[in-house]
């Protein structure tokens, strides 16, 4: 069992804001709030691509590309970012386990179609959801999903399935975290 005991769950209106705020607070940017991350990360964006069909409709986005809010906020605050994608599922799992063993909470990009704690009505092939994985208890990974009021958990199989979901913006097991604390 490994767990980051200082970890505090944070609920947010938008998933990447929540993950960014939470991870950077533990990296020394303690004053950070969700609106601040959203603003510093320039999260507001709009695009409509009628020729690109997603779920049988035109692709519409109201937020920037997945990962950008975290990247921009870290850049502005001078915090170096570690980000890793994986071609093999085993390597992705090994890397996550190593991070957790070192007591590090990490952000993960996932697809929501197989996200078991989401209601069926929300489960589309949407691959730009973000969550924090902050610990492991036997087969269960401890998950802090900013959409949820409290922490949840996923089994090894469930987490692998959402981390390696396929389709547009396939997350490819993507993991990210602030490399060092802000001096």
């Amino acid at each position: 069992m490994c767990m980051n005991n200082e970890f505090k769950h944070l609920q947010a209106a938008h998933c990447e804001n929540g993950v960014t705020t939470n991870l950077l607070r533990s990296a020394g940017a303690e004053q950070l709030t969700e609106p601040l991350s959203f603003g510093i990360g320039s999260g507001l964006f709009y695009v409509q691509l009628p020729f690109l069909k997603i779920n049988n409709g035109p692709a519409i986005a109201f937020r920037t590309m997945p990962g950008l809010i975290f990247k921009r906020t870290c850049n502005a605050l001078g915090i170096p970012v570690a980000r890793k994608k994986f071609t093999s599922q085993e390597a992705g799992k090994r890397y996550l386990d190593e991070c957790l063993d070192a007591g590090r909470a990490v952000g993960a990009q996932v697809g929501v179609y197989y996200l078991t704690y989401f209601p069926k009505e929300y489960r589309f092939h949407f691959n730009a959801h973000n969550m924090i994985v902050f610990g492991k208890e036997e087969d269960k990974y401890m998950i802090s999903d900013p959409v949820m009021e409290t922490v949840t958990s996923l089994t090894d199989y469930e987490l692998q399935r959402v981390r390696f979901a396929k389709g547009a913006f396939a997350p490819r097991g993507q993991i990210y975290y602030p490399k060092e604390k802000r001096s």
Partner: peptide, 22 residues
Amino acid sequence: GALNKLTKEVVYAVDSSGKYST
């Protein structure tokens, strides 16, 4: 809402003193 069975959502609104809060 569909999410209602599992969780409530965070939203932003103005409180009695005119400041934004969740």
